[in-house]
Amino acid sequence: MTEKSFMAGFGGQGIISMGQLWVYCGMKEGLEVTMFPFYGAEKRGGIARAGCVVSTTEIASPLVTTPDSAVVMNEDSLPLCEGIVKQGGTLLINSSLVKTETKRKDCRVVKVPCNEIAEKIGDGKIANMVMMGALSKVTGAVKLDKLEPVLKSFFPPSKHRFIEMNLKAIEAGKSAV
């Protein structure tokens, strides 16, 4: 199994964090992983992208050019993501912010209202975790189960009080698809 994912949005949405946590959880589940971040020079609001590969075998190219799954977190990222996602791949779209319909007919389209779900849980900032839950459910590449100890080892102790909320967001994302 090799799953190449491409995540795109704007700076501040937690795109790089999502990529980082996705591969970290993959690594903890025994997979080979690689993540390449790309972002603009702006402090906030610039482009943010993460190319992630998780695999049961040695990973060849760390550059994700034709992803199996593409995560579209904002409207501006749609043309890029729908332009590169593999035939028969999956487009995961944050329908809270992406209102345009995709032109792609040859791949699975999964819409998740990430921001709405996140706000219901308590904070719009965890929209990325909602999406990560959805990505897990749809691809099955990283299971994201037995997550609490993994999140505890990922985040410094000062952030542990946010873990419960993040777990809820990931579960909500899984249930939304």
Binding site: Q20, V33, T34, F36, P37, P62
Partner: peptide, 9 residues
Amino acid sequence: GMIGQMMEG
């Protein structure tokens, strides 16, 4: 830059 910036185990 790729080797420097990418994250792996």
